[in-house]
Design a protein around this nucleic acid. Structure first.
Length: 648
RNA sequence: GCUGUUGUGGCUCAGUCGGUAGAGCAGCGCACUCGUAAUGCGCAGGUCGCCAGUUCGAAUCUGGCCAACAGCUCCA
């Protein structure tokens, strides 16, 4: 028979040949490195028998899909090791994930780091035993009985929840058998004993449901070569050095204090300056894009939130002042969003279609009573300020205005340098959501979502779909960003809302003299300033682009004789609006340079007798430590260009 | 909220068996006036996260609470 390989070439094999035979026919080296294969586009294992006309791509550790198969098998080996060490443990699920794998296990007391070492040692034995990994299938009832007999209640539940017609497969290696759809590598010996590592142990709810039991999850990762594992672990360590929560505190951008409370960071002068720069910039750009700046209260009576629906959907997340249940007394709540406040601007008087689109922008501080375990540095806090905005629209303006919002957000994210690492998520409702989260009719949702989809497709936006990620009033386009630990959060959001205008009685008089209900877009342009600052610190490892950095230039004197000259230079820099300080302390120049370097100040001007005499400045560049003597004017010109172009 | 780890001067950390706290850096003072990543000497700084309990005696043992970190769940 003939099969087609990835590069288009045709391989002739005996009938009944397997993927492994094909790999051997290509080269012995490939057969040794092979972990799985893509047959007609589907990931299959090496034992798969090929058919005439199949297309074949052999997968090794250098293919992401091959690595996934390997890691999935390593998770089985880990489960086997755990069952050898602690036979009373109960297995839940153990998939491969982006950076490795995990297995959820029910065992009293969880696992300590010492336990992980024991497990690793046992895993190495299993690798050495080189057990064959074999697949077999069982009919539903037998499969349930099999796992019940093994006293694996989680596996029984998993099988029971499979569709009636599902193929129920198992994988066996030595004495260990696990319920699993596969595919897997052919034998445990193909795992490199020095190229996997168990990285952490933590809690995770059974089936991701916080009402159910918390199991112990062990995370690990695996590669084909020790060097790849070492490089990965080194890269993780390196990423942690960029953690904004560490450098943001060390470099004095923010801090937290016990007596103020969780999720309420103190933004220190450097952080406050960066946020001020961002806010001014955003407000100015939005003004240029036709936004009207508003300033609305931080709190309102309970009645406002009842109209908006937040009282019903969001009460737990709000800071309430007063007794929320006592209807005889006034009760206020700090705002968790700006929508109903900003709508009052529209409602201020009767509106004409000529007023639309009405683009309202506000640098808006919000308060959300997050659960105590959710706070994280500046990324997840209880009080934060966003570049909020609401656009009130005629229906036919929706598409163009949505595009405008996306373009604006892209320009801003691009300017600060974060756009290249962003991904887009189309957050949709889940009509099956059991907790009655969503308002509006299926028709309204269908309309809002199909409109958004059309816009996204027209714009050629590459996006993933997030089911059950919508707001209660409409679908969202979320711009997502990952922190140094790989955890993703929303940076910017653009939402279509076809419900709230009606609830607030927002209307406009159309050309035909009839009153109509507008559409609304909720959007942010640069998102939450605290969060954006956090990501900027991580992206640039604390060395922010020069237009944003709190201190752009530091003037360092070599001796007291240069102090007067330094003051002259500073005066000139001040006059051009450069953020600059003079370090005229009586310290050695190396000491001052070291400090400025650690503070990641872009330029140092080092001034001594020579410079005072010639009227030049010695410019030291933070990035490479290079120095060059030049006239002040030459430096000022270069600096002005870098700041004006917002270089990064 | 849940699981786990952690909490000692501003920062990084030491502190043995329960006997009342120690270093480096930073800060302050003095001397040095120095050419591209740490000059020397000296001084000061802590209710050991908070509150109870056990004990003759608690940084150390027990409990509760608070906060920080990672993960889960939730979310901008």
């Amino acid at each position: 028979m003939k099969i087609t390989l990835k590069d288009g070439s045709v391989l002739t094999l005996a009938d009944g040949a397997s993927v492994n035979d094909a790999a051997l026919a290509i080269s012995a080296g490939l057969a040794r490195a092979a972990l799985a294969a893509k047959v007609n586009g589907e990931v299959r294992e090496l034992a798969t028998v090929l058919c005439e006309g199949d297309t074949l791509e052999i997968l090794t550790g250098s293919d992401p899909e091959g690595l996934r198969v390997l890691r999935h098998s390593v998770s089985h080996v880990m489960a086997q090791a755990i069952m050898r060490l602690w036979p009373e443990a109960k297995l839940a699920i153990g998939p491969a994930i982006d950076r490795g794998f995990y297995y959820d296990i029910d065992r009293d007391g969880g696992f300590t780091m010492e336990d992980l070492e024991k497990i690793e040692a046992e895993m190495k034995k299993i690798v050495k035993e080189d057990e064959k990994i074999e697949r077999f299938e069982l009919p539903r009832e037998k499969a349930i009985a099999f796992m019940a007999e093994k006293n694996e209640p989680y596996k029984v539940e998993l099988i029971q929840d499979l569709p009636e017609d599902a193929v129920i497969s198992f994988y066996r290696q030595g004495e260990f058998t696990d319920l699993c759809a596969g595919p897997h590598i052919p034998n445990t010996g193909r795992i490199k004993a020095n190229a996997f590592k168990l990285t952490s142990s933590t809690g995770a709810y059974w089936r991701g449901d916080s009402k159910r039991k918390m199991l112990s999850r062990i995370y690990g990762t695996a590669f084909m070569k020790k060097e790849e594992l070492d490089a990965y672990l080194a890269q993780l360590e390196d990423a942690k050095k960029r953690d904004h929560n560490k450098i943001g505190r060390e470099m004095e951008y923010f801090t937290t204090v016990d007596v103020i409370g969780q999720g309420l960071p103190i933004i220190l002068p450097k952080g406050a300056r960066v946020i001020q720069l961002l806010q001014r910039w955003v407000e100015d750009i939005e003004q240029a894009h036709g936004y009207l700046l508003t300033k609305t209260p931080f709190m309102a009576k309970r009645e406002l939130y009842k109209i908006s629906g937040h009282w019903d959907h969001y009460l737990d997340g709000m800071f309430v002042l007063g007794d929320p249940k006592d209807e005889t007394k006034e009760c206020f709540a700090l705002r968790p969003m700006t929508c109903p406040f900003q709508y009052q601007v529209f409602l201020n008087r009767a509106r004409s279609y000529r007023d639309l689109p009405m683009r309202l922008g506000e640098t808006s501080t919000l308060f959300r009573n997050e659960d105590s375990g959710e706070m994280h540095g500046l990324i997840r806090v209880r009080q934060f300020t966003i570049s909020e905005g609401h656009l009130v629209l005629r229906p036919e303006q929706l598409e163009e205005e949505f595009k405008g919002c996306l373009e604006l957000a892209k320009v801003m994210l691009g300017t600060v340098g974060l756009l290249e690492d962003c991904t887009f998520r189309f957050s949709q409702w889940d009509p099956k959501n059991p907790s009655n989260k969503y308002e509006g009719t299926p028709e309204q949702w269908e309309h809002a979502q199909s409109t958004m989809q059309k816009i996204l497709d027209d714009l050629g936006v590459e996006y993933s779909i997030g089911i059950d990620e919508a707001a209660f009033y409409g679908p969202k386009l979320d711009v997502q960003y990952k922190n140094v630990f790989g955890k993703e959060d929303t940076l910017v959001t653009i939402q279509i809302d076809m419900l709230l205008a009606q609830r607030f009685g927002m209307e406009y008089v159309d050309e035909d003299g009839k009153k109509k209900t507008p559409y609304i877009i909720h959007r942010t342009s640069l998102g939450c300033y605290e969060r954006t600052l956090a990501y900027l610190l991580e992206k640039y490892a604390g060395a922010l682009p020069i237009w944003l950095t709190p201190e752009q230039v530091r003037v360092l004197t070599i001796t007291d004789r240069a102090v007067a000259y330094a003051a002259q230079i500073k005066e000139k820099l001040d006059a051009m609006g450069v953020r600059c300080t003079v370090d005229s302390r009586n310290e050695k120049i190396g000491y001052k340079i070291r400090e400025a370097q650690l503070e990641k100040i872009p330029y140092m001007l080092i001034l001594g007798d020579k410079e005072a005499e010639t009227g030049e400045v010695a410019v030291r560049d933070r990035r490479d430590g290079s120095t060059a003597n030049m006239s002040y004017d030459a430096f000022a010109a270069k600096l002005a260009v870098e700041i004006a172009t917002k270089a990064h």
